[in-house]
Design a binder for these strands. Structure first.
Length: 426
RNA sequence: GGGGGGAUACCAAAGCGGCCAACUGGGGCAGACUGUAAAUCUGCUGGCUUACGCCUUCGUAGGUUCGAAUCCUGCUCCCCCCA
């Protein structure tokens, strides 16, 4: 079996590493942690790379700690920010932490096993710390000169940085000291943007308790086309099914480029190196089938959500992009139908008006607002762009009736291939 | 304070008395192709109408004219040059 570092290395997940970690890990399992910033109401795919490090750590027999930044979140990390952060309220942070926990517990094994994961919140050891303790016992160990040299601070010297954010590295640094003293934690992991903060922690631990602790960072996840990873047109890709439906989540990964897929499948799945290489071979032979993306989407969707959610996402994808038919639509339960079309624009019309039948153009423009004007609706119908329940309708004089209802109360209108609109009939 | 230029549809930018719902480019939407990709090609892109046609729109308020985005006047806003 591969060691933790060997795993990270072949997966391309090592950006920077402190010397000596390899030797330290040879003497049996160690404890390692990743800090999570509670600035968002749930975890996103942007957090996923750091979490994967934690997961791989556990899979290699080591003990992971997930540290929620209840205290650090109150101060604000200046890393990568060109201006001061807006402070979040305690309530907001607590809500975010609660939201993020929901996803965390699914990803790691929090059992009583020797390498069972631990969930901590640094607010617990900072909330009652007197300011004098902080200044005398912690602040004394790092010089301003050292702290100034950090990239996150240096880039802010011109535009201004508050004392609060300047102190951030001391707060995060002390986390490491605390975890070292109480949990014998000797490894901190994170994204490459955290290198400065993490080394502040190793430095502080060395000076405060002469402990030798280590750090590993992973490269920033990038996209080949230069756009930001982890965002879609609708915004963040969340790990919470309430915020990003499993279907959207699945689609996000399915739509990665060939180039990125090779990278991501190493980072975000547990596939072994031979498996990845075989898959790449398969992909090279039949790129149009996109085996890499399909496998990638499958692995991550089942890891974050459930097998069942994945199956439904695949079904929905086939329905929407593949050989979807009216029959397939009709066979769906109402619940499943609504799940698939969660998030698509909706409008409603009355059942009574449908009984008499509605003029197609009226239906598309006036009744439902799928098109802003009748002329526009007519144009699109004429150019073969409009479908009702997956069937192209090109006759302008088509009448919409009860025969078009799905589950007795829905009509699926499609503009082009990708734009859906669900009409609810009440 | 003096002088000059400008304001056109989502953006940019033509038009400078009738042939203007307004050239063109970008963007957007759709179609073909394709891998739910990229590139490419095609169509559409103020409203109402099957259509003929009608209505509203070229900063804003008036005016001249049979007829104005186009000419005149007031107003508002922008830019440039000289002080």
């Amino acid at each position: 079996m591969m060691t933790f570092l060997e795993e990270l290395t072949w997966r391309g997940m090592v950006h920077n590493i402190t010397p000596g970690l390899d030797e330290a890990m040879k003497n049996g399992p160690i404890v390692g942690y990743v800090g999570i910033d509670p600035t968002a109401p749930a975890l996103t795919v942007g957090n996923l790379a750091a979490l994967m490090m934690l997961i791989f750590l556990q899979r290699c027999g080591h003990k992971p700690i997930a540290l929620m930044g209840g205290a650090t979140g109150m101060v604000g990390d200046p890393s990568g920010k060109s201006e001061e952060r807006q402070l979040k309220t305690v309530e907001e942070l607590q809500k975010n932490i609660d939201g993020q926990k929901k996803q965390l517990v699914k990803l790691l094994d929090f059992s009583d096993a020797p390498n069972g994961a631990i969930l901590l919140n640094n607010y617990d050891w900072f909330k009652d710390m007197p300011v004098l303790t902080f200044l005398r016992d912690i602040g004394k160990h790092l010089t301003v000169n050292y702290m100034q040299d950090k990239d996150s601070v240096k880039t802010r010297m011109e535009t201004g940085i508050s004392f609060t954010e300047f102190s951030y590295q001391l707060i995060q640094g002390y986390d490491y000291v605390h975890l070292y003293q109480n949990y014998n934690c000797k490894l901190q992991m994170g994204g490459s943007d955290q290198w400065g903060n993490i080394t502040a922690g190793t430095e502080l631990t060395r000076r405060m308790c002469q402990g030798e602790v280590f750090a590993v960072t992973c490269p920033l996840i990038t996209k080949a086309d230069g756009t930001k990873f982890g965002k879609s047109e609708q915004g963040n890709i969340w790990l919470d099914p309430e915020l990003t439906s499993p279907y959207q989540f699945y689609q996000f990964w399915l739509n990665t480029s060939d180039e990125d897929a090779k990278k991501y499948i190493r980072i975000f799945t547990f596939l072994t190196e031979p498996e990845v290489l075989a898959l790449e071979q398969e992909h090279a032979e039949a790129p149009h089938l996109r085996p890499l993306q399909k496998r990638l989407a499958k692995e991550i969707t089942t890891m974050i959500h459930e097998e069942e959610a994945y199956q439904k996402a695949v079904e929905a994808s086939q329905l929407l992009f593949g050989e979807g038919t009216k029959e397939m639509l009709q066979s769906l339960t109402e619940k499943h139908l609504l799940e698939i079309f969660a998030g698509v624009p909706q409008s409603s019309i009355s059942k009574a008006s449908l009984e008499a039948g509605i003029d197609f153009i009226e239906f598309l423009a006036t009744e439902t607002g799928v098109f802003p004007s009748k002329a526009d609706a007519r144009r699109n119908v004429t150019s073969n762009a409009v479908s009702i329940n997956k069937q192209k309708i090109t006759q302008l004089d088509y009448r919409v009736t009860q025969a078009d209802l799905l589950s007795n109360s829905y009509i699926l209108v499609q503009k082009g291939k990708r734009n859906y609109h669900l009409v609810v009939v009440k």
